[in-house]
Design a binder for these strands. Structure first.
Lengths: 129, 129
DNA sequence: TTAACACATGGAGTCCACTCCATGTCAAGA
DNA sequence: TCTTGACATGGAGTGGACTCCATGTGTTAA
């Protein structure tokens, strides 16, 4: 696949695709004799993984590390697993933060909705923010 | 409360506290006659809200807007509610993305754990990333 | 009253993750 | 063959969110 096709498939810019490859977030992509990128099935798998991880805010540095480990063969399996476990822990923490924020948002929206009907903002104690 | 006390209470740097006030993410804080910040209960409420919202990645711009609306009185109640609803929608979307990523992470960690025992990476089809 | 330390301000610097640009090569249709 | 549009590379620029710094004033304990 050409870079244009991949960028359409995953809805990512060509610049981002080249950037990810350049910094080693995905392994080097195959080239045609003339130097054009020719994405394989496996390249696409990496792109998809990168997109998924980045969409959840997993830092680029961790993904570069993971990609590097992968290219060192099966002896890095434990290291890779540990890296992923660590990122999972951080992700879970972020999700908890977001859940708290969601609750706060729901609470405030509820107060505002009531106020639209009654004309009165019924905040709890000193919570007039 | 002094800025040092507030920064300890919320575990935020004084620089961040001043920064938030400077950009209007929280309303202007009271001052002593000599110009030192003197945080009230309500100021603290704003700090807490800012910290909570930012920890979930709500953009600073939206929070500045919300703060500005709040200072324009009750006639902005609907606008404030709509702003919060919009941010809630985005937050929910992010949480879904994260859930997908979490599933992927769990799947991969599982494969790596099995590989540590069996010595074989049992990826599905072309999913060797 | 005088070190030593807290606080204030405005502006510069940093980090992350892209995104854009200049310049040059390659390819495919008129 | 010529031209136009896709692709390549290296490097510069951008936006968001802080974080640091220089300089000046305030405060307080010995």
């Amino acid at each position: 696949m050409t870079i244009t096709e991949v960028s359409k498939k995953y809805n990512m810019t060509q610049d981002t695709l080249r950037y990810y490859e350049r910094i080693g977030l995905i392994p080097a992509v195959n080239r045609t004799k003339s130097g054009m990128r020719d994405y394989t099935e496996e390249s696409c798998g990496w792109i998809e993984l990168a997109k998924c991880m980045r969409s959840a805010g997993i830092p680029i540095e961790a993904l570069i590390e993971y990609c590097a480990l992968t290219q060192q063969g099966d002896r890095t399996i434990t290291a890779r697993k540990e890296l992923l476990v660590e990122e999972r822990t951080k992700l879970l923490q972020k999700m908890e933060e977001m859940k708290k924020t969601l609750d706060k948002l729901n609470y405030k929206i509820d107060i505002y909705e009531k106020a639209e009907v009654t004309g009165v903002l019924s905040w709890e104690k000193s919570d007039r923010t």
